[in-house]
Computed example of a mutant assay.
Amino acid sequence: MLSYRARRRLSLLALVVGLPLYIVVAVSVVNWAEARWGALPIWAALLVYVGLGLLWALPLRPVFRGVGKADPDAGGR
């Protein structure tokens, strides 16, 4: 299990570096699919982007859990 400080650092890295990279990859894949098979209807494109927007957070959920709270290892600071 990761320490509180390690989870904070990893979550910051995921948000600052990983999320922008994921956005670029997701938009590129959708654009490639639309170029190959034609444009999606607006409701389908919305579903794809909402699904991809939620998909990135699922594997990182344990890293983000409790990061916004006070450090449990800090004691009485």
Rank of each mutant, 00 (worst) to 15 (best):
14 A>D: 04
13 L>A: 15
43 W>Y: 12
33 A>C: 09
59 P>V: 00
60 L>V: 10
77 R>L: 12
13 L>P: 11
4 Y>W: 06
65 R>H: 08
18 G>Y: 00
33 A>K: 03
28 S>K: 02
55 L>Y: 11
71 D>S: 04
2 L>R: 06
3 S>R: 13
38 G>N: 08
19 L>S: 09
48 V>R: 02
19 L>K: 04
15 L>P: 02
6 A>G: 06
5 R>S: 14
45 A>E: 15
18 G>I: 00
40 L>F: 15
2 L>A: 12
50 V>A: 15
23 I>A: 13
71 D>C: 00
56 W>K: 10
32 W>C: 08
23 I>S: 06
73 D>I: 06
60 L>N: 00
26 A>H: 02
76 G>I: 09
62 P>I: 07
29 V>M: 11
33 A>T: 09
40 L>D: 14
45 A>Q: 13
25 V>Q: 01
23 I>T: 08
35 A>E: 14
53 G>C: 07
40 L>N: 13
10 L>H: 04
43 W>V: 13
76 G>F: 09
7 R>F: 04
24 V>P: 01
48 V>K: 03
49 Y>N: 07
7 R>A: 13
26 A>G: 07
50 V>S: 05
29 V>Y: 04
31 N>S: 13
32 W>L: 14
18 G>K: 02
49 Y>L: 09
61 R>E: 15
73 D>T: 14
3 S>N: 00
30 V>Y: 04
20 P>N: 05
25 V>T: 08
33 A>D: 10
63 V>A: 01
68 G>W: 07
39 A>G: 13
25 V>L: 12
8 R>F: 02
11 S>I: 04
28 S>F: 01
57 A>I: 08
47 L>S: 14
15 L>C: 06
59 P>R: 01
32 W>M: 11
40 L>P: 01
8 R>M: 12
13 L>W: 15
11 S>H: 03
74 A>Q: 00
57 A>C: 05
37 W>R: 06
66 G>W: 00
13 L>D: 12
1 M>C: 10
15 L>T: 10
19 L>H: 04
26 A>Y: 02
22 Y>L: 03
52 L>C: 03
47 L>C: 13
65 R>E: 10
52 L>Q: 00
10 L>N: 07
45 A>R: 15
65 R>Q: 04
7 R>C: 11
60 L>T: 10
11 S>T: 08
17 V>Y: 02
20 P>E: 05
27 V>F: 07
74 A>R: 04
77 R>Q: 10
51 G>E: 01
24 V>K: 00
16 V>K: 02
74 A>S: 03
9 R>W: 12
49 Y>H: 11
47 L>M: 10
69 K>R: 13
56 W>V: 13
43 W>N: 12
2 L>I: 03
38 G>S: 02
30 V>L: 15
65 R>G: 07
32 W>S: 14
30 V>H: 07
67 V>R: 06
8 R>Y: 02
11 S>N: 03
1 M>L: 10
